[in-house]
Nucleic acid binder design. Structure first.
Lengths: 131, 131
DNA sequence: AATAAAAATAGTAATTATTACTGTTTTGAA
DNA sequence: TTCAAAACAGTAATAATTACTATTTTTATT
């Protein structure tokens, strides 16, 4: 139960901190193998889950069937390009008032919300023009 | 390419229309086996995907690792109970203005959004009180 | 510094949701 | 009625993730 230090876990988190593109477990695995050539994919999954459970990273489920991870745990919104699938942070205020709006006429208790925006990223827009 | 009639497909859609709880493919399979005892799970998946592709049903990815389906394709928002996982429709207005807010300072093009609300449903709230 | 129990690891096997394949049956236009 | 296209049942394959096991690391205590 008590947490013990592990270089692998530290490396995984350090890697995530350097990235703003919300890598998947496999991307983390590929990268961390640079420093730990025989790290196990299971170790990557276990540590990502552990870090997410203790709130040091966030697990992001954009609906593409693969979990993404983010070292930025502050509340922010994500954009997902429907063409290339990239996940990009949006710089906009929190929409907490949504929760109040949603609670009206609902007999449960709403604590939070997740919003994903979909469309085309700048890169894919530029590509499309050339055709 | 041309669509041909299939009783299985009709039964799958009819079943979805009767349900407001956003069943998974497996739930659909279980139910439709009542009328077609040897329907294949592959047939259920294929038809759910087909119906979703032509816009007759909606595929809902709430982040629990399983796809849910909804015969109500009108724009509406969903609540997911973090305790029992049930998916419930919310009766609230469209939040289209979010897209405009999100587009400010973003160099891609945002077309749509998906919002999920999380919390405890009425059933789970009642259960919790008894402890 | 040595010890030892708890935690973490590497490597592998298992699970789960979903998709793909194949030979047969059904549909519907000619 | 015919027959090609579409859909089917049944099964195999894929992909992401989790579980298991024997070994290694960590760290508190001697």
């Amino acid at each position: 139960m008590a947490l013990k230090y592990s270089r692998q876990r530290e490396t995984i988190k350090d890697f995530l901190i350097t990235r703003k593109d919300h890598p998947t477990a496999d991307m983390v695995y590929m990268s961390v193998r640079g420093s730990y050539p025989n790290i196990s994919l299971g170790t990557v999954y276990r540590n990502l889950t552990l870090l997410a459970d203790i709130g040091e990273i966030a697990r992001i489920r954009v609906g593409d069937g693969v979990d993404h991870f983010d070292a930025d745990t502050s509340l922010h919104y994500h954009f997902i390009c429907s063409e290339c699938g990239s996940v990009i942070d949006l710089d906009m205020d929190s929409l907490d008032h949504l929760i109040e709006a949603a609670n009206v006429g609902f007999d449960g208790q709403i604590d939070g919300h997740v919003t994903y925006f979909y469309g085309k990223c700048n890169n894919c827009l530029k590509k499309g023009k050339g055709e």
